[in-house]
Design a protein around this nucleic acid. Sequence first.
DNA 1: CTGTTAGCGCTTTCAT
DNA 2: ATGAAAGCGCTAACAG
Lengths: 345, 345
Amino acid sequence: MSIAAVAQRAGVSPATVSRAFNAPQTVAPATRARIEAAAQFLAYTPNASAQTLRTRRTRSLGVLLPTLLNPVFAEYLSGVADAASSAGYSIVPVATDYVEARESDALVKLIARDVDGLLLTVANAQQSALLARLRRSGLPYVLTYNRHPEHPCVCVDGETAMRQLVSLAHAAGHRRIAMVSGQRNASDRAQQRHQGYLTAMHEFGLAPRLIEVPFMEALPSALTQPLGKADRPTALLCSNDLLAIRSLRAAAMAQLRVPEDVAVIGFDGIALGQELVTTLTTVAQPNRDIGLRGVQWLIDALSRHELPRPAHSITLPHQVRPGESFPLPHPMPSTPFPCHAESPL
Amino acid sequence: MSIAAVAQRAGVSPATVSRAFNAPQTVAPATRARIEAAAQFLAYTPNASAQTLRTRRTRSLGVLLPTLLNPVFAEYLSGVADAASSAGYSIVPVATDYVEARESDALVKLIARDVDGLLLTVANAQQSALLARLRRSGLPYVLTYNRHPEHPCVCVDGETAMRQLVSLAHAAGHRRIAMVSGQRNASDRAQQRHQGYLTAMHEFGLAPRLIEVPFMEALPSALTQPLGKADRPTALLCSNDLLAIRSLRAAAMAQLRVPEDVAVIGFDGIALGQELVTTLTTVAQPNRDIGLRGVQWLIDALSRHELPRPAHSITLPHQVRPGESFPLPHPMPSTPFPCHAESPL
DNA sequence: CTGTTAGCGCTTTCAT
DNA sequence: ATGAAAGCGCTAACAG
């Protein structure tokens, strides 16, 4: 059903029908009523492509993210989807698996799809030629999870969080505190978390120990082996929850009790962590909110015909979520690493 | 950059440029070369909306699914995304949370978006007015996970799988075999699985026991309570992996060892099941493949200007994936419930 | 093999 | 408050 059919049936011109939909107050109530009736009767739906061709707006957002197989990003995307949907936008997600080449491909495709704006989580915001191009393109975008002073970001302060964890572990009496990480340069988040670990360990005069785990293997020897040694770590700070879950299994394989023999903390706050036999103590990120806020910011910018400004980047608060894998003091010590949310809205 | 600009620079008409892109062999090599050079130079990208307006094809697929927060559907969507992307289609996912009203809304929105086809997983394919409307609409679609004789489906035979599990449990000596299920009428899959359980229990002359769990609570008493009783079940057949993971925790809370005191089997085959301290024995569905096949079928139909035909529905093979939560005989008994894949391709 | 022409459905000046 | 008319960028007959 085209607008012309509605116009004819309502006895008005196509232009008036268009107005009745897009600027109802500019059309006389009586006329509007007739138009609405006609539209109803004909089950008229505006043709999105024609609107787009004319207005150059698609009301869709591209979402570039590493993977859907990590629940962190599934939770995030779920937030993105809800926020977009309730603002009348649809989303076009593309997973890139942390591969830079796929990030570029995806970007090109999304741009060709004429998305109105872009939400992206890239492997590494520092060395991403992508972002430079993107900024030059003039297409509105917001980075999520990534932190970078020259780009608009909705993120969490992973470095601070990690320092906080080291501090907690130290306060609990731990001295052999290891960090479990995937291939470290896989993402800038992992790097930041690692940096926080190193800094804090240094501050406490402790020797850092890095356990680097190939991401693909289910139960890598990289993980089981250090736990077999006499001077094994007593606390494992994991760069993400998936690694923490593997660490729990590695500990069990090594006949170690969690948390008595080895305490484990995760990072990300995936929902499943709370359902495990040993619930996961973890740094809970507001994954859904990261998505929500990103979308809101983007759409807000879109509506004012502006670009999201790097200076308005938001750092959302994280929180250490208690679990059985690492007992926390009660009450939590007043955190020496305050974390404020700054809102651009 | 419009096609006109390219045409001008290459010294040909717009139509020829269009042909050079859409039917290269119909254009003289020399001309084509000039056009390509011009396009390259101007960084020309075809305008998708204009193409759509003209051809009535968007090269995008709507994906209606229950939720992204269950890894089953995240794995599935990941398959969908890959298959779509490699066929040059983008996807527009919408999560409906098993709520029929949201299913209808989503459908309307996707249709308004002019998707070329639809992949959907609905709560209940039997009583979904949605599907009747959808079929009448003439828009090509494929159901995934749902089974229904009158719709094109890519699914798994959950009823047979469940009977197989009862049979395995019985063979392992279990007699008090309970089924753990969410609100049973939440989805037709859950119903089918439950039906398989009932049938098989009846065949073996065993009394069925249903443990029904409110989906939202993390550790529902519905689950812990039956495990405290003297005649507690010795085997828990769970309607999905998330419930199985909760069951593992419930068992631990009740001081029961898995599998010695109570054995647990899941259903779905999410990747995380293999990373737990007690790895999950489960019915592994080919989640990614369900997505892949659904997309392939849909796109194939699209290309022939046909609708996917119900008669060509595919039942993909499931398999019982061994884990520590329920020891399996070695080798597996030749399954009394053969499961063939029938391909429409 | 290539050009001309018309029009997909909508929005938006510009008139009235 | 409403209508007429032009055009967004592209493709598909139809001619030549």
